[in-house]
Structure formats: structure tokens, C-alpha cells
Simulated scan of single mutants.
Amino acid sequence: MPRLVRLYIWSVAIGFAMSGGFTALLMWLNVAGIGGLVLGSNVGWIAVAMLFVFFGILFSGVQFAIRIMMMAESGDGPRGGLRQHLHPLRLRAAAAARRR
């Protein structure tokens, strides 16, 4: 299996593990009354499943982005973007054309 695919699968696993912990913590601490709403409803499991999946997608994406950015090599390449050298404007020519 390619290295990047393994990295992605590992990042997804870590992201969904973090999502499970975060969702459980959110329900246990009853932040903004979410725990009470979920436990008081007969379809609260749908809300928990959606929180788990959406947090999993979010945390997986952030985990993968951080890992990819950490793979950058610090070489002698360009720094500070691709700067283009601008030539000075010829304002006298434009001003002389306006006077005529």
C-alpha cells in the first residue's frame, strides 16, 4: 500500500477516535443542554450519530492536513512565495500625454 494512503487511513482512524471521545465528553458534560436533549428524545441516537460522523470528518481532515504539512522538507528552495520583480512605472509619459 502506498505511503500516502497509509497516512490517510491512519489519520482517519485517529480523527474518528478523537470524534468518539469528543462526542462522549460533549454528552457527559451536557454542554448547552445537548446531553439532556439527546437522552430525553427517542431519536436522540440520530443526533449522536450525526455529531460523531461530522466531528470525525472534521478531525480527520485536520489531522491529515497537519501530518501533510509536517512532511515538508526544509531545503534551499524559494522562500516567501514567488515574487516578481516589478519595473518602475513611467509616470512622466502618462502625465505628458494628458497635457496635450
Rank of each mutant, 00 (worst) to 15 (best):
G61F: 09
R6Q: 06
R67D: 10
A32V: 14
A32E: 09
V43W: 13
L4H: 14
G35D: 07
F16Q: 01
S11H: 04
L82H: 13
F55A: 12
G44E: 00
R6N: 03
L82N: 09
I57A: 07
F16P: 03
F54E: 07
R67C: 07
V62P: 04
V31G: 11
P78E: 11
M50V: 15
L4T: 12
V48A: 12
G61R: 06
L91S: 12
I68F: 10
D76T: 09
A97N: 07
A49W: 11
V43Y: 15
R90M: 00
F54Q: 10
R99S: 10
L86V: 13
R3C: 07
L29W: 09
L39E: 10
L7Y: 02
L29N: 04
M1Y: 11
L4N: 07
L37A: 08
I46C: 02
G33S: 05
P78L: 12
V48P: 01
W28T: 12
R99E: 02
S41W: 07
F64G: 00
E73S: 09
M50W: 07
R90K: 06
R83V: 14
G56T: 02
I68E: 06
L29F: 13
I68L: 14
V31S: 05
S41I: 00
I66N: 10
F22N: 08
P88N: 09
R67M: 09
E73K: 15
P88V: 09
N42R: 14
L25I: 14
F22C: 05
E73G: 11
L82M: 11
V5W: 13
G35I: 03
V31C: 05
G33A: 12
R83Q: 15
Y8L: 15
I14M: 06
A47V: 14
G21A: 14
M69Y: 08
I34Y: 03
S11I: 04
W28P: 00
G15H: 03
M1C: 09
L29Q: 14
A97P: 00
I68M: 12
S74G: 13
Q63N: 12
V53S: 06
A17D: 01
Y8Q: 06
A17V: 14
V53K: 05
V12K: 10
L86A: 12
L29S: 09
F52K: 06
A47S: 08
L29Y: 09
A95F: 15
G15Y: 06
M27A: 04
F16S: 05
R79Q: 10
R92T: 09
P78V: 06
F22T: 10
W10L: 11
G20I: 03
M1V: 13
Y8C: 02
G77S: 11
R83E: 07
A96Y: 01
L82C: 08
L4I: 14
A95R: 15
G15M: 02
F52C: 00
E73N: 12
W10Q: 08
P88T: 13
L29D: 06
I68C: 08
I68D: 00
R6T: 07
G21L: 13
M70Q: 15
M50F: 15
L51V: 05
R3Q: 13
L91N: 05
G77F: 15
P2G: 01
M50R: 15
L26V: 04
G77C: 08
I9F: 15
M69F: 10
L29I: 05
L26A: 06
L89Q: 07
L37N: 04
I66E: 07
G35S: 04
I68G: 02
W10K: 08
